[in-house]
Nucleic acid binder design. Sequence first.
DNA 1: AAATAGTCCAACCGCACCCAT
DNA 2: TATGGGTGCGGTTGGACTATT
Length: 309
Amino acid sequence: MGRAPCCDKDNVKKGPWCPEEDATLKEYLEKHGTGGNWIALPRKAGDLSVHVLDPSLISFPRNMMIISYGLKRCGKSCRLRWLNYLRPGIKRGGFTEEDDKIICTLHGSIGSRWSVIASQLPGRTDNDIKNYWNTKLKKTLLPGNSSCPKSENMSNETTNEIRHLNLQQFWASIPTAETYDSGNSACFDTNSNALPYSSESNVQNYDSNGLVPDPSLIISRSMQVSGFHTSGSGSENYSKTSSQDLSGLSTSSTLALENSYGLWSGINGSVKEDGIMHMDFGCESHDDEFLNGFGFQEDTRELAPYLGN
DNA sequence: AAATAGTCCAACCGCACCCAT
DNA sequence: TATGGGTGCGGTTGGACTATT
């Protein structure tokens, strides 16, 4: 038996949104927010059954009174409409060359994780980027077309910009010590920005003479590994990559990688004799050490068999 | 001018994850 | 621990628009 549908599909409207619906949804969300429940939102918005809408929101003559009878829309549809179209600060079209570079680089690193890519381009939605990729950028990557910039061609300015953005997000994304599965390496106080536990003997900068002849290949594979979410309490249901069985990884391993992979591009690293992956995040040295201490010091030991050498 | 092909993009669908119970 | 509802995400679709024949 399948799960119950999220709404009564026979009694919801589908297809393009009209200006009245947009205005109703926008007004409700600006006043009340989602209330943490998109499913119930259309009914609640419908409670404002008769009201005057802001004429500036719609393409009707000014001062015209619009009477709304609520939203006969699925909650998911409302969410999508808000996030992709009505939300303040949305940028539409006009992708710049730098945008292209960022999208191409991130797509090359992490694949079609559009929401992650969108998080690097303020004001852009995942849907917008996905469409842009499918209709424009992808074609530039077809055999014979190499106009999409590769990461090595990205200007230092752009690369630094991405790293700067990511470092800010990294701090913002760190869970509290109470909720994070600490192990030895990630038990710290995010309020004080104190560095996590790190054993100096285990934290080393990336060495180009390491065991791995092509560090970029290894990172590429680790990106694949990190592209999977943990589920629940940590020991069950890990997804597989096309060729790698991840069932042996602990929650903290994939959490650490999950945190890092969406946040960094162009990082290098290698698996040393101790089985630990040491990463060069392109930061000042103490930041590298911090990040290694946070996510990669202990946990990646488990990853070594999957990363190969 | 009409027909056809190609492009774009808003919106839908289904699935996996998260979290409360 | 199991279950079910809500949410977020990526893939896909369908219709509007534009270009070409």
